[in-house]
Amino acid sequence: MRVEMLTFLLSAIICLGGALGVVLLRNTVHNALSLIATLFGIAVLFMSLGAYFLAAVQVIVYAGAIVVLFLFVIMLLGVDKVDHIEREVFKGERFAAVAVGVAILGLSVTALLSVGASATGQASANRALDPTAPDINGLAQAIFTDHVFAFEITSVLLTIAVVGAIVLAKRGGAVIDLEEFPDGPAVIDEPEPEPEMEQSGAELDATADDDATVEASDDSTEAEVGS
């Protein structure tokens, strides 16, 4: 019991730390590495839940393939990307984002805790886990009998994804024609210091008029749309 608890707590800390790293760190490479930490933590949790095959796949596919792919792209495009998280599409957007997050967390935890110490639900009727056999047997039976169509369709999906990736990556292939969209992107602006919020109203308006604050660019966007 104690060992399980310890395992859970350790991997939970790793998971949360990795997740916070993904969100908070500025360097994209560090983000990717934090993501690996989370994925490994979840793989450990899978194991403690008896899903050994999935734990293996988690490490191989996610950590081994997906994150490596992320890193490839980061290296390809350069790591010096500066993320202006302080810029908002509309005022109070970041606050709204955090509020939504808190609400999701609070509500789901409320829902979980209000039913008592353990999850409830209808127990399995026809595909129970078999503790005597390896978990991979039950999983294989489920996938190749009950979910065989879904399985086949995922293979098609993978094929399409590969073809799509090749088409997208082909140099000189389909690119977005900016002449077709002369308006350009909605928010066109140089990185600049955020206007000081302590400014008086008149000054704020003046800044908003000639500088590309978020509001001003929003207005100009609307004007373009109107024309």
């Binding site: 792209v73 970041r94 999701i104 935890v109 979980l112």
Partner: peptide, 19 residues
């Protein structure tokens, strides 16, 4: 749900498409 929330807030706040 904690991890999910962190991911959701990150998605809403960050602007780098990779992140």
């Amino acid at each position: 749900s904690l991890i999910f929330t962190i991911g959701a807030v990150g998605l809403l706040v960050r602007r780098n498409p990779l992140v």
